[in-house]
Each structure stands twice: as C-alpha cells, then as structure tokens.
Design a protein around this nucleic acid. Structure first.
Lengths: 154, 154
DNA sequence: TGATATTATGTAGCACGCTACGTAATTTGG
DNA sequence: CCAAATTACGTAGCGTGCTACATAATATCA
C-alpha cells in the first residue's frame, strides 16, 4: 500500500510556479518569462545573425511557438524581423534599443530567478538536482521503460 | 566565469516532454494529460461529491483553468456537471460510464508515465528527486532569497 | 431584517505550448 | 537544366495556463 509519488504533477506545479514568478519579475520590463529567456539568448549571440531556427533548437520548441513569441516581441518593439539577404527563406532577428535597455536593467533578475529556485541547496544538491532533471527529461523524451514488455517487432 | 545552470529552462523542457508523452499515451482514450489526472482524482474520491473547488485546490490551478478543463471533459462525455442541491453556487461533478471505462483501461498508463520519468533511478535518487522538486517548488512559490538585500520594511 | 462580505463559478482576453497543413526558397539528382 | 526533396517559415485550430472582471448564492453582523 505504498503511496505513489506523482512526479509529473509536481513538475507541472513547479514549472507553473517558476513561470509565474518570472512573469511577475519581468512585468516591469513589459516582458514575459519566455520572452525574457529569448532576449537573453539573442543578447548572448549578438556577434552573429540569429534565426528563428536557432531559437527553436536551443529552447526545444516547435516553430509555430517560436513564431508566435517573435511576433509578439516585434509588436512590442523589442526586435526587428527582416528577411535574410543570402537565404530568402530565413528571417533575421535584430535587437532594438528598447531590448538592449531591457536586458541591461533585467539580466540580473533572470539569473536571480534561477538562483531563487535552488535557494538553500548545497552545491552538491544543486548538482544532483541538475543531474536528476536531465535524466528525467531524457527519460520523458526517450521512453525506454521495459515495464511494457514490448520488444521491437519491426 | 562559472557557467550558469538554467534550472528554469530545464524544468520547462522536462515539463513539456512529460506533458507530450502523456498526451500521446492518453490519445487512444480521447483524453489529454491534465484530463487524465483529473479523472484519476475524481475516481479516487468517488465516495463523496466533488466540486470544481476541490480540483482547483488539489491541482493548484486557477478556477478558470479548471472550468475550461471540465467543460471540455463534459463535452466529450466523461463527466456530468450538475447544480448542487444544498449550495446552488456549487457544481457537482459526476463520472459517466465512459469515464469509468477509460479509467479502467488507462489507470495503469498514468502510473507508468510517472515510473518512466524516474526510470533507472535508485530508490534513494527517487526520494532525493522528490525532495528537491518540493523544495524548489516551495522556493518558487515563496521567494525568500536574501540576495535582494531587501528586509521587510513594514 | 437588511446591508455587506465572502464564496463559487462564469466570461473575456491573453500567453504559450502543440499538430497539421500550406508555401516559398534552396538543394539535390537524373 | 528541370523535377523532386528538403528546409524555413506561416496560418489555422486547439489545449492549458493566467489575470481581471462580473454574477449569483451564501454567510455574517449591526
């Protein structure tokens, strides 16, 4: 009669809590959680052109999701989306002054949010948490649980 | 120049991966991840009346979110939503035959999904994972990081 | 009793995930 | 060189989160 531990539900709750805290933190910059993460990525790669495809791969998101995010960020004046001169399929993303300003004022917040998540953790616990998160993510993405007793019948 | 570990981003990715795996798993039952969790909860409490408020508190969701979920589940014929006779503000939620059937066929899947997440974990790692998840969730919900150097000025 | 507060829920509108499908540009192969 | 595959992106439509506001029923209290 051992009680089942609902990891999935707890992860959902944790994700929501983090997401909301980030949204509150970024609200003064007119940014949301994901948009803040996007800006940080764009800022870290300002030495080379960035395309929607890059964001899609780095954040492991579908391209319509990235597309929507970028549209909203463009509408709010954080980025410019221009056609690429070499490959006309691609859109080039450029940061505006408003974005640079937001990054300057908000980058510390982004790091603090992550630190806050592991507040009170020892270094060892932080490493373990990271390691377990990665392994769980791997398990979720590539289910290999032999409980199913279903071998490849191909 | 130590590299920052983006816990928030990894948690987002993990949550998405789990959510998608659950959706795929439940697709044959005409259910989604969250709807499956709702059904499980309702099934566990079939000895007493269940109200939207209960789901809201247990799953830590806002009431419009619960409301939407229930509407879609009602539309698909898994539940009945009827007014409560004692307190006419409340809606009573009842499982249909279709729901009982889905639960019978799908409950094992729900547990497997959670097991799959921690596949390859030792018992100790499972416990540690759970413990760290809870502490992180607590940190996210109740930020108390003294990095801010802002004491209560009330 | 009658005004006020609280509680449970509904609706509107938005952010952010997804799949499925469509289109335009580039690349590849005969 | 031209047809076919691939690649990058757009749009439609949906599920699941949220906040803000509205409404109806119950509870509280002078």
């Amino acid at each position: 009669m051992k009680e089942k531990i609902p990891y999935g539900r707890k992860i959902k709750a944790l994700n929501r809590a983090f997401h909301q805290a980030a949204n509150v933190s970024f609200a003064s910059l007119e940014l949301t959680c994901t948009q803040g993460m996007f800006l940080t990525f764009l800022d870290h790669h300002r030495d080379r052109p960035v395309y929607p495809k890059d964001l899609e791969q780095f954040f492991e998101l579908s391209h319509p999701t990235v597309s929507g995010l970028l549209s909203r960020m463009e509408a709010k004046g954080f980025i410019l989306i221009t056609p690429d001169t070499n490959d006309r399929r691609c859109k080039r993303i450029t940061l505006t002054e408003k974005a640079h300003d937001a990054i300057k004022r908000g980058l510390a917040q982004m790091e603090q949010l992550d630190e806050q998540l592991v507040f009170g953790f020892t270094e060892e616990e932080k490493n373990q948490f990271w390691s377990l998160l990665c392994r769980a993510a791997e398990n979720a993405a590539n289910p290999c649980n032999p409980l199913q007793k279903e071998e490849d019948h191909a």
